[in-house]
Amino acid sequence: MALNSACVGRRYTAPPTVIPPDRALAFARAVDAPTALPAPDLGRLPTLAAVYLLQPVVAQLFADREVGLDLPRLVHGEQAFTIGRAPRYGETLHPEGTIDSIETRRSLDVLRFELTARDDAGAVVTRGSSLFVIRRDAGGAGA
């Protein structure tokens, strides 16, 4: 089943979020990053904010049946981040995501998802761009 291109532009938001020190510490250990106690320097965990803040938004995308993502056939093809500044412990951040494009390339559907986390003032803390590829003629792969 091809993806529903009518969903381009669809926006998802997640509840305001803070990064708990214990989660940052677990993440730092998992990616072999510096693990200063009791809380790692968030400036030295460039993928944490994107992953932790934006994961709920990506989960909404994956659960949106109107988009039609076939998860067992989905491959995380590309990922890019820009980090405006490091988040701070205790600050509230606001994640959102938007379907930027859906394309069909031969036997592949390709969906680009743009992600942003902003602070209370609306300033961008981190941006992400994810490219998801869905293979329509093969078994799953995934990343």
């Binding site: 030295r44 460039p46 995380h76 590309e78 990922q79 980090i83």
Partner: peptide, 9 residues
């Protein structure tokens, strides 16, 4: 600090 990062999987 890393301010931008990208890759292809």
């Amino acid at each position: 600090r890393v301010s931008a990062l990208s890759c292809r999987f």
